[in-house]
Nucleic acid binder design. Sequence first.
DNA 1: CCTTTCGCATACCGTCAGTACGCGAAAGCT
DNA 2: AGCTTTCGCGTACTGACGGTATGCGAAAGG
Lengths: 192, 192
Amino acid sequence: MSRAEQREQTRRTLLRESRRLFTAKGYGAVGLSQIVNAAGVTKGALYHHFDGKAALFRAVLAQVQEEVGRRVAATADAEPDLWDQLVAGCHAFLTASADPDVQRIMLIDAPAVLGWNEWRALDEAASARHLSDALTHLIEAGVIARQPVAPLVRLLSGAMNEAALWLATSADPGDLADTKAALTRMLESLRG
Amino acid sequence: MSRAEQREQTRRTLLRESRRLFTAKGYGAVGLSQIVNAAGVTKGALYHHFDGKAALFRAVLAQVQEEVGRRVAATADAEPDLWDQLVAGCHAFLTASADPDVQRIMLIDAPAVLGWNEWRALDEAASARHLSDALTHLIEAGVIARQPVAPLVRLLSGAMNEAALWLATSADPGDLADTKAALTRMLESLRG
DNA sequence: CCTTTCGCATACCGTCAGTACGCGAAAGCT
DNA sequence: AGCTTTCGCGTACTGACGGTATGCGAAAGG
């Protein structure tokens, strides 16, 4: 195996195993020794690829955010109508957030580990950007009233994040439908 | 000084200093040695009063939540009309969340330190309960449509938490007014 | 075939949360 | 008052953690 291949494989294994452990136990409860044991390497390898525990977490977070962003964008783009794209994207975000990786890594640990400011910047670049773009286009198209977009994005993004976490612990499968209905009603209020 | 007085004073000093440090640096970046130094005691005293670092944080969080709950309830109760109570309470929550203690301790660190489940239970008992009660009363009174309350509470609670954090880093003072306006529009959609 | 590169292992360090135990002063008891 | 018990807290220690310095051995380059 060539050196480049070996390097890539080690890096991918570290990302995979750390993501698994972070998801299962949370950032604080996972030691570097557990990660390198699971990956079959040593701390030397880890520090050769990443600047430390937080940097490793950052790389894992980037993966998760990229996956969520792709899923949301794909679902939204399937709708021809601009308004339907917004609704479909929001529903897709709720669905994607059912993934335990998303919940623990992206919604719970990330703000505390990276600080809220950095988390917000990454969230903006990944998923919230789609929401921001959609709302801007809808305003340009005259579908919803002209108003500041930034506060709306934060309100809606926060609502969806929190609802997603709540749905994770919910026993009643009807809760997802109820939440989507309530969220849709909130969105509809923008069209009024 | 009597033993009871001494005990009480040590406990209060520990709570005060740890709250100050947690707010300034965040839970993870504060060591127990810093806390006991600031309080003028030793780790023996800390472990005599609390079961550990997480338990100390829990006690601090309870303080913060209680303060926020009181402020929100007081503002809401000043309104005679049931609907105005809801709006006033939500606005009061946004205002109260401008406090750095609330942001760092209650909104950022608490979910990661205690886990989201415990955080949610405490949040429910403290501040979200008021929101839940208000919505239930409004449904009983026929002011808003009959619908599941729990998803609404999570959506609105999450929206306000996130908006509060965003407002904290906002430079434009008009953002608060814009956010309150957007939030009010969301609430109005319930009356439709 | 010799040299350089570099991916990674080994061994170590400072700091942290948490624990075991002892002291000394206040509180109860006769 | 004196004697004992209680208990608030200090002291001294431990294991585990994140992080660093350094060395080795195989692949790449000439």
